[in-house]
Structures are given as structure tokens and as C-alpha cells.
């Protein structure tokens, strides 16, 4: 990867030194003409994204387009094939504790006998060598500060009631809150969340989305969140990045999630409809190639993904949700 131009790093260093206005406008994440190539295939290219302090940005797009890959590029796990990527003013992978990361996952094994607090604590000091000494907690001020921070962040996500239970026995929503606490425990300036609402039921999707929105405001944390459905987070979003094969569109949801922008982006006719309650439905759109065995690719109905780009959505069946979710919701009702 190409190093940043000299003037850029000078500006960033200056911004860190003075806490004045420039700091507020400092971009935590900057991609310029970035491209990602995975096993010889270009997932996306020519992507320009800038995320400022405290912004809540969603990364949207069809399955297999490389949304998670974008997170990996920002983490520095995967190098960008071309273009320039800066995270917190540095090369990706060097910002360490200032980034909170929540990977895409299934749930913890039900048999895992470890408490939620332990998982949060690992987020704080799990990468330090050695073992924690139980007796030190009473005497060392650092230990006490660590415990206070863990308590505080668990309270922040509303997980106090179940943080002392084995995490394997917690529900999906409870586990997700504890994992958000784990990602937040080091007071990061940037949160990278990979489909945190996936595998949650509808009420939990709404609650966790509200929690993330609240945290990005109250803790002044920038959030970059991969989502396959924009609707639960739509009220809290500052901007969206819509990835498509070969390009990307970034801007406010009102700018990007429109018939015109998405039709131009995908190069095929796409229509954005708005339900009476404000939810957005994208109809049409390309069926994205998903050669890497993306775990959603097998779902029969969820072909277009992105934001429920399925044919059924147009017939009023699933406003921005995949059919599986709908079936679940239907059962509940």
C-alpha cells in the first residue's frame, strides 16, 4: 500500500497537537480511490469515503459485494489493492486500542462457561501477556480503575442484569450488547461493527440499533456499521456508503438511497419505494455474485440483499427485510 503524502501526516500531527477546531473536523477514516481484491477478483474499486468524529455511517450493498472486506481493510487485516486508506490518520492496523471491533458472528457456544463481564474485560486487557492476579484487585488502583470502567460500560449498554451470567446462556440480543460493551471498553474513537443486528429478532434489532445510535452521540464515537437492512438504523444514520460492483456511492441516506443514485450505481433500473412509516424498500437491482460462500447466499429469497432488494418486497411483503425475518415476525404476531 502507498504511504500517505507527507502533507497529510503533517496536518494530522498538527490536529492531534491542538485540540481546536481542526480536531473536530479531522476525518477518522479516509478512503481515496481505494479498491479491494480478494483471490483475484476486484470486489469494489474507486471508493471515496470519509468518516468524521462521532458520525454514524452504514455500509450497505448486495451480498458478496465486499462490505465485510471494507471493515477488514480498515482493520488492516487485508491490505487495500490500490488507493489510499487512512484510519485515525495512520496506516490501517496501527491504531490498535483506539478502534473497537465487533466481528460478524454466530452466537457464543451455549456451553461456554465464562461470564459476560469476563468477555468485556478481555476487550480491555485481553491482549496483555501474563495472568490477572485475583488478589491484586483490592490493592492496585489500576485494577480498580479497570473494574470501574467495565462496570460503567456494561451499564451504558444496559447489560448489568445479566453480565454475571455465563455468556453462552444469554440471548442473542444480550450477547450483542455485551459485545458492544467489549468493543467500547477502551474508549475507542472509532467502532467498526459487522452486521451487529444480524440474527436478532425485530424488537432486539430496533433496541440495539437505538443503543448504537445513542452511543455514537453520547460517547462521541464514530461508527462504521455493515448492515444488510438499513431500516432499523435509518433514524440514527448520518451517512451511508452504498457499495456496488465496481463503485460506491456515499452521502446522506436521502441522497444515496434514491431511485436515481442506485440506478446509476448499479447500471440497471432500480426503484426505491417508501412505506407509509418511512421504511425504504429497494426493488430490482442486480443479483450480486457471491462466490465465496457468503452465508446469506444460500437463502432463496434474500437474493438482492442490500436493503431487501427482493422481488417480494415490491409486492408489499417485506419492507426492507428478508423473508426469513418476516416469517419470524409473523409467527410472533
Amino acid at each position: 500500500m502507498k504511504d500517505a503524502p507527507g502533507k497529510d501526516s503533517v496536518r494530522k500531527n498538527g490536529a492531534i497537537a491542538d485540540t481546536g477546531e481542526e480536531h473536530l473536523h479531522e476525518n477518522l477514516v479516509e478512503l481515496r480511490q481505494a479498491a479491494a481484491v480478494v483471490s483475484g477478483r476486484t470486489l469494489w474499486g474507486g471508493v471515496d469515503v470519509a468518516v468524521a468524529c462521532g458520525e454514524f455511517v452504514a455500509v450497505l450493498g448486495p451480498n458478496g459485494v465486499g462490505k465485510s472486506t471494507l471493515i477488514k481493510v480498515l482493520l488492516g487485516v487485508l491490505p487495500a489493492a490500490s488507493g489510499e486508506v487512512r484510519v485515525l490518520g495512520r496506516r490501517p492496523g496501527t491504531a490498535g486500542g483506539e478502534i473497537g471491533y465487533l466481528p460478524q458472528r454466530r452466537n457464543f457456544d451455549a456451553a461456554l462457561r465464562i461470564r459476560g463481564t469476563d468477555v468485556v474485560r478481555l476487550g480491555l486487557d485481553g491482549d496483555r501477556w501474563g495472568i490477572p492476579l485475583p488478589a491484586a484487585g483490592r490493592f492496585s488502583t489500576r485494577q480498580r480503575a479497570a473494574e470501574a470502567r467495565i462496570h460503567e460500560v456494561i451499564e451504558l449498554v444496559g447489560a448489568t442484569a445479566y453480565a454475571h451470567r455465563p455468556i453462552g446462556g444469554c440471548s442473542g440480543g444480550e450477547q450483542q450488547r455485551l459485545l458492544i460493551a467489549q468493543a467500547l471498553v477502551r474508549r475507542p474513537r472509532l467502532l467498526l461493527l459487522d452486521e451487529p443486528l444480524d440474527s436478532l429478532d425485530l424488537p432486539n434489532q430496533a433496541a440495539v440499533a437505538a443503543l448504537i445510535g445513542r452511543i455514537s452521540r453520547s460517547q462521541d464515537v464514530a461508527v462504521v456499521m455493515v448492515a444488510h437492512d438499513v431500516n432499523p438504523i435509518l433514524p440514527y444514520l448520518d451517512r451511508v456508503v452504498y457499495l456496488a460492483e465496481g463503485g460506491a456511492a456515499a452521502g446522506t441516506p436521502a441522497e444515496v438511497i434514491t431511485t436515481e443514485t442506485l440506478t446509476r450505481l448499479f447500471g440497471t433500473p432500480v426503484e426505491v419505494l417508501q412505506a407509509s412509516d418511512g421504511r425504504l424498500v429497494v426493488v430490482g437491482g442486480p443479483e450480486a455474485p457471491a462466490p465465496h460462500g457468503d452465508r446469506h447466499a444460500g437463502a432463496v429469497v434474500r437474493v438482492g440483499a442490500g436493503m431487501g432488494m427482493n422481488a417480494e418486497a415490491g409486492t408489499g411483503m417485506g419492507a426492507g427485510m428478508d423473508a426469513g425475518m418476516d416469517a419470524e415476525a409473523g409467527d410472533v404476531r
Binding site: V77, G96, Y101, P103, L122, G123, G126, D127, R128, A183
Partner: peptide, 16 residues
């Protein structure tokens, strides 16, 4: 400690 982290939460541990 890192071993517990890597056992419980490999993806986040690797990112750290």
C-alpha cells in the same frame, strides 16, 4: 490471558 482471549473470541483477539 491472551490465550483465554484467543479461545473465547478469536476474531476480536486477532484484530487486537
Amino acid at each position: 490471558r491472551p490465550l483465554v482471549f484467543a479461545s473465547v473470541d478469536p476474531a476480536v483477539a486477532a484484530a487486537r
